[in-house]
Design a protein around this nucleic acid. Structure first.
Lengths: 337, 337
DNA sequence: ACGCAAATTGACAGCGCTGTCATTCCTGCC
DNA sequence: GGCAGGAATGACAGCGCTGTCAATTTGCGT
């Protein structure tokens, strides 16, 4: 039969309430007692019953991860974040549930309400691009559900994690400038994603700092997909004056650019330098391997969840952590032809 | 305040137990009563408290989806299955949790035990490649946890869903044969995955049926990744007598083959026909678009979960559903040069 | 109309834990 | 040494639901 808290209490010769206190790391238990109880738990391999805890304590020990699988910034990215969030939840003995929620659907808020009413998550983790969807944030606040975000657009007092994407984008464009490139194109991501804005801003900043005025023909709209990268590149390669380097706002599009380069008989990096953003596994598998910005998605998911949890447990309050990026200079970029 | 079952009971003028019966679709409630209770639930927007149900009823309304994120058959694939499983769980008002579990790790079983003891899932959904890991299945049976599998290797009395991958592979190779190809190469997936075996078997079957004896040089090992496709293709293209068509065991590797074709100056499909398997989003974005086999992963996840749930609820017992495949003939295959 | 079995409904305890508040045990200090 | 005041511990009810079993109603044959 199942070992219950009461059994542990009897074994440790204390009241059930004291075992509960130890279980929940509450104050006012002497070290000696705490040790004794811990030992008993250990010895009996005690596992608290989550439903009982949740029913009695009016908390669910549940974190929900929300994502938009429609405007999907690549399933690899989400899968990595999910792994990170899960790792953090596990470590704190919370459980996690995932929740696709389509921002464009009319019943977004209704579904959110259903999630909250049905499962009572203690908190939620928001992933791009729904980190800044105002009606969502409003409802979460109204219903008093704490949240943490991965790469939120607005950096107010939100909890979560960010990377300085603009500075990273600037750095990678400066890398291209350093190789002598001047006609550097940029393939932009989906318009209203923060990622697209920051990366574009970083591109512009670097170009301006180098004293280059922006050529609108060199800034092409993409949609974060391989296919959109191919199309953007075809557009660029048809230009009278072709770029010598392309900075795509993510690796998938950069891969598309490299693909299109093949179609046009352009050798990368000899005739064309290409770089991306994200450092997806794909980027290392290409040949030549892609110069890109490493974005540690898994780590970011983990940190966001940790900030949320630390806010939930009242240990400190959680904050917006900024994590460093690193440039991955690989074979796809070289000096200007 | 929260609406409880008791409140509904009062509104419908019945006992709480009767409301409970309606909630759980139990027998022995007159239609009139059932209607009345349903109406009251609806009117009050009643949401049963999962923890209370679970505590009193000794079931968790929880399905765990297990996957191996180490030997990962592409995150897109898993993400789609996950979406399907989630959809089915939602429809039946079950909740779902995801659980990465590394088959190669020594503490696989320990982690599985922890999952079961900590969360008491009512059932689990197994995804490749851990659908046939014997110690796992053994432990699940020992601990009396029902499971359903997506594409299990062994088709005994397992619940779940499969596709006739061998026949699909055979069909796609026959498509190539029909185009006049005779030197058809195959890039194999990770050795012990069922998917690799079936697709290889289908390839062999088709070749044999066409009266072609196997040329070992045309069967190259890959690992389901883009990069492994590139390498396999390079190997094939260096052959004295090159293949005129390549069937890769999945789309990622097929994309790698197309990439390598570019390196070798081979135009697809004019100089080389390429086809894959899975019909990932990528396959439609390529140019030319990839001829492949449509594998409806999302649907498969959904069906597997439905079989599990129907077994759990005793409505029928659940079975191993075989779903049809369909060939997606697109631009990457053409008549032999 | 009456009796009986089957169908329907309800009363009540209790799932395993935590919140509240009462009780006991310390400490330090006059 | 005695006492105030805080720290540690415990008693007990109850979170919202379902299992068990008893009570009531219904349908049906005579």
């Amino acid at each position: 039969m199942r070992v219950r808290l009461e059994d542990v209490a009897r074994a440790a010769n204390v009241s059930p309430k004291t075992v509960s206190r130890v279980l929940n790391d509450e104050a006012n238990v002497t070290d000696a007692t705490r040790q004794r109880v811990r030992a008993a738990m250990e010895a009996m391999d005690y596992r608290p019953h989550p439903s009982a805890r949740s029913l009695a304590g009016n908390r669910s020990f549940l974190v929900a991860m929300l994502y938009d699988n429609n405007d999907n910034p690549s399933s690899t990215y989400l899968a990595e974040i999910q792994d990170g969030v899960l790792e953090a939840c596990d470590a704190h003995r919370y459980s996690m549930m995932v929740r696709p929620l389509r921002m464009r659907d009319g019943d977004f808020i209704r579904r959110l309400d259903a999630l909250i009413s049905d499962h009572h998550p203690d908190g939620v983790v928001l992933t791009p691009p729904i980190t800044d969807y105002a009606p969502l944030l409003k409802r979460l606040r109204e219903r008093n559900v704490p949240y943490a975000s991965v790469s939120p657009l607005r950096r107010g007092k939100t909890l979560g994690v960010t990377m300085d994407e603009q500075r990273a984008a600037r750095a990678i464009v400066e890398h291209l400038l350093g190789l002598g490139h001047r006609r550097i194109a940029h393939v932009v991501g989906i318009a209203d994603h923060g990622a697209s804005r920051w990366r574009l801003a970083g591109y512009r900043e670097a170009m301006a700092a180098a004293g280059l005025s922006e050529d609108p023909a060199l800034v092409v709209q993409g949609a974060f997909t391989f296919g959109s990268g191919v199309e953007a590149a075809r557009q660029l390669f048809s230009l009278a004056e072709r770029p010598t380097a392309v900075f795509a706002a993510n690796d998938d599009m950069a891969t598309g650019v490299m693909w299109a380069a093949g179609e046009y008989g352009l050798k990368v990096p000899h005739d064309l330098s290409v770089c991306g953003f994200d450092d997806t596994p794909l980027s290392r598998q290409l040949w030549p391997a892609l110069t890109t910005v490493q974005q540690p998605s898994r780590e970011m998911g983990k940190i966001a969840a940790e900030q949320l949890l630390s806010a939930l447990r009242g240990h400190g309050t959680g904050r917006l952590v900024q994590i460093p990026f690193s440039l991955q200079i690989r074979g796809s970029t070289a000096t200007v032809p």
